[in-house]
Design a protein around this nucleic acid. Structure first.
Length: 234
DNA sequence: TTGCTCCACCGGGGTGATAC
DNA sequence: GTATCACCCCGGTGGAGCAA
């Protein structure tokens, strides 16, 4: 049985939907910014429609990215950097746990209410289910990591130190920039959704520019964009 | 049935006015 | 010069209702 076309019923073309979702997730733009940019290109869409489309297709596009990228990267994911960041939702503190590999690729994002062993365990299990297991877990000095890794039986693979997981700390920056532009999240559900999609899209377009020549950078960028334009085509 | 728009709401950030 | 406050702007969000 074939899957129904997800773009059926939509009045606008799938190219425009892909463009709207990419603009909103990839760049630090608000829904209204995207509305304005599309209007500049002669596309009339309300910010609510952009929201509707990103909610509908963001996770779908994001789920296609790992399928294409993970296979070639599993062997290189030997070192995970784990860190958690504070995010306010309606004035209440929540925690966004993130796992980053040694190349800066975001492996997993997970939102919790607490920052204890239980939350760390949940996060680690989720990440390991998806990406198998790392040889080394680099963490900060938060004791929840040690307790959770001990329970999983991988405590000996932990390396912790105040400055050791700077890579994970740095990976928060694009998300922080984005969060600032959005002013705030109002629901844990929307934070979880946005964090997951943002990580996938960031990985997809992140070219590690400093490591390649201008020519290679342009080729990789074009390839990423071409790939993006193929999402949702099946 | 579904996509989309309109409208209203809540809340954080920025800014200018005012008091000290 | 600095701190405080009120106000406005702009962000995401939810629900009702319309149109295809």
């Amino acid at each position: 049985m074939t899957k129904p076309n997800p773009f059926r019923y939509f009045k606008t073309s799938r190219e425009i939907i892909r463009l709207a979702v990419m603009l909103y997730v990839r760049f630090p733009l608000s829904l209204r910014n995207v509305e304005g940019l599309l209007h500049e290109r002669g596309i009339d869409v309300s910010h609510e429609a952009v929201r509707y489309r990103w909610h509908r297709f963001g996770p779908m596009f994001a789920s296609e990215i790992p399928k294409r990228r993970i296979e070639g990267m599993k062997s290189s994911r030997w070192r995970w950097h784990l860190d958690e960041m504070f995010v306010k939702i309606n004035g209440e503190q929540r925690y966004l746990w993130r796992a980053v590999d040694h190349e800066g690729e975001v492996l997993e994002s997970f939102v919790t209410k607490t920052r204890d062993k239980k939350a760390a365990l949940k996060f680690l299990k989720k990440a390991m289910r998806k990406h198998c297991c790392a040889e080394v877990f680099v963490t900060d000095l938060l004791r929840s990591y040690g307790a959770a890794l001990k329970e999983i039986g991988t405590a000996r693979r932990q390396e912790s130190g105040r400055w050791l997981n700077n890579r994970a700390e740095n990976s928060h920056l694009p998300f922080r920039r984005r969060e600032r532009e959005m002013l705030r999240f109002r629901r844990m559900r929307s934070l979880q959704k946005f964090a997951a999609v943002h990580a996938s899209v960031y990985n997809h377009f992140n070219q590690e520019r400093r490591l390649s020549t201008r020519t290679n950078f342009k080729l990789n960028r074009a390839a990423a964009l071409a790939e993006w334009r193929g999402f949702g085509a099946a």
